[in-house]
Write a protein that binds this DNA or RNA. Sequence first.
DNA 1: ATCTTATTGCAACATTGTTGCATTTAGGGT
DNA 2: ACCCTAAATGCAACAATGTTGCAATAAGAT
Lengths: 139, 139
Amino acid sequence: MTNQEFTELLHNRSLKATAPRLALLNALHEYKSAMPYSAIQSKLSPIDRVTLYRTLESLMKKGVIHKAHQEGSDIFYAFCGHSCSIEQHQHNHVHFKCKSCDTVTCEEPKRSLHISLPGYDIQKVSISIEGICKDCITA
Amino acid sequence: MTNQEFTELLHNRSLKATAPRLALLNALHEYKSAMPYSAIQSKLSPIDRVTLYRTLESLMKKGVIHKAHQEGSDIFYAFCGHSCSIEQHQHNHVHFKCKSCDTVTCEEPKRSLHISLPGYDIQKVSISIEGICKDCITA
DNA sequence: ATCTTATTGCAACATTGTTGCATTTAGGGT
DNA sequence: ACCCTAAATGCAACAATGTTGCAATAAGAT
Ligand SMILES: [Mn+2]
Ligand SMILES: [Mn+2]
Ligand SMILES: [Zn+2]
Ligand SMILES: [Zn+2]
């Protein structure tokens, strides 16, 4: 992803292509897997804390990024897929955190799981999984 | 649940039956659904913040309570079932947060869902659901 | 090049997490 | 009923993150 493309992405969502936003998008892009808040802050340092806070907020609100994991103290952020837009987030995937390498990734489960709670109106499902990732098992 | 029973519960887990712990257990018990941190703090006020922190930690470690919801800023706590012990937490239920009444409850889904991620070793699954609860729909 | 509005940067404050240490207390042993 | 000791509390102190207001700045439309 080039800086030019990120700029388009932001403009499509009525967001100005500012330095902090491009820095964040580049950081997330390079990081490959979901990026913990602490790593984002280090990478973008010396960014103003409030600016980072609002940058994350606006990008989340516009369906560009999403929180991928929030057990533990460090919150992980990841890019949304094409299914997410300014109107709504649409995530059918799960979030996997490896206890060995501490990496958080967005994964598509083989069988799409259907949760049934009779009498309830289910609007959003978040699934966080912990275990050992493929790479750490093979290695 | 009487105070006497709570004392036994604590002793079974090698924990002393102190005032802060009994206060917490009583608060959780009265609250019925999962209790947000802020409500716990108000209810137990004026409890020392550190004591509350360590009380929650120790009770979680010994399988007496667990975090029921941690999207949002307020973390919800709830009693563990009989399946949880000093050795390990064993939760097969999901956590439902009602967008209307803001209540968080532990729910047993009808079909037990099986998540399949080939190549990965799944050790723990946390499912958080948001929507409208049974009571709010009926009302 | 100018203008307008979104965005930033800073100050300031709030909440929660976390550790160290001295003091208190629960509960087992006598 | 009284000791004793380990466990637990209370307080100080610091760190990290969330959150708002406001003045200064800069992006992008004209
Ligand atoms: Mn994801
Ligand atoms: Mn639960
Ligand atoms: Zn791994
Ligand atoms: Zn409800």
